[in-house]
């Protein structure tokens, strides 16, 4: 019974982890049709921001929940102004340029922090579940993800900002005729996407440890989760795909090994894309957000 509870908690944690690292990419892809291959490095930068703040003696909760999103959002804003805005509508070029940015950021972080792995202490104690020792921090991750997705839904669905954003994405010319500059909307959207990635990186830093190259681990998973989810409905699609991937990868991991679990998840992504080239939301959630 305890074992079943552990499995369920692990699956929930895995779904939350995937949904958290995919959020920023999903916003940027779903809203702007821009694939940001530097997304993993945004997450990594969020982690290093938390680390730097922690070392400087700043309260770690404040660092990961406030400073990390702000710093990475600012980085995203600078990158949008310097690079991305010249490439709207050129999907492959955007992917290549952001891939270059990702290498650039890895190089910069290596120069500043060195290439060895560092870790941040988890600020929550573990707890006992029957005979199993569980990390209390995992529950916090699940909570953060829930709050984040509810907030995203509310902002997109029930605020003026969300309305303008959706309008600009649906028809840039009409939005612009109504007085909303689409380019400003794209800029704000990209910045918010980067800030969400920074939040994910900051919150996950105590669990995953940090390496300059650790963004590579996130981008693969976030990339397939978001593309498989599809651009038709950002939130529903991403949640559906991360839910599916989380369940499959964790069940296979418990049955065989974590590596096989990860391979099962990647293979599932190929099969899903073959069956549903427009993503899950292109097929099932056409009318939701």
């Amino acid at each position: 019974m305890d074992y079943a509870a552990v499995v369920v908690l692990q699956i929930l944690y895995m779904i939350a982890f995937l949904a958290l690292i995919s959020a920023g990419l999903a916003i940027v892809f779903g809203m702007m049709r821009v694939i940001n291959l530097a997304h993993g490095e945004f997450v990594m930068l969020g982690g290093y921001t938390t680390l730097a703040c922690d070392r400087a003696g700043i309260d770690i909760w404040f660092a990961m929940l406030v400073i990390a999103p702000l710093v990475v959002g600012l980085v995203g804003l600078i990158i949008e102004r310097l690079v991305i805005r010249f490439l709207y509508g050129r999907m492959i070029d955007t992917m290549l340029a952001t891939w270059g940015l990702s290498l650039l950021l890895i190089g910069l972080v290596t120069l500043i922090f060195g290439s060895s792995a560092v870790s941040v202490a988890a600020p929550l104690p573990g707890y006992q579940l029957g005979e199993f020792q569980m990390g209390g921090y995992n529950l916090f991750i699940i909570l953060v993800t829930l709050v984040l997705y509810v907030a995203m839904w509310v902002v997109l669905r029930h605020t003026r900002l969300g309305l303008v954003a959706r309008g600009a994405m649906q028809n840039a010319e009409i939005a612009s005729a109504l007085g909303y500059n689409p380019r400003t909307v794209y800029m704000v959207t990209f910045t918010i996407g980067a800030a969400l990635s920074g939040l994910a990186g900051g919150v996950l830093a105590p669990l995953t440890g940090l390496l300059p190259a650790s963004g590579g681990a996130y981008i693969g998973q976030a990339f397939i989760a978001v593309i498989t989810g599809g651009a038709g409905a950002v939130i529903a699609g991403t949640l559906a795909s991360t839910g599916l991937f989380g369940v499959v990868s964790q069940l296979v991991s418990f049955a065989y090994s974590p590596v096989i679990g990860e391979i099962a998840m990647l293979a599932l992504a190929i099969i899903l894309l073959r069956l549903m080239p427009q993503g899950i939301s292109g097929r099932f959630f056409r009318n939701s957000q």
Partner: peptide, 19 residues
């Protein structure tokens, strides 16, 4: 100079300037 720093810089500059 870190290797990936330069590789990344080249890629960004080429995509922007001489696509």
């Amino acid at each position: 100079i870190d290797n990936s720093l330069l590789l990344g810089l080249i890629l960004v500059v080429v995509v922007l300037a001489i696509p």
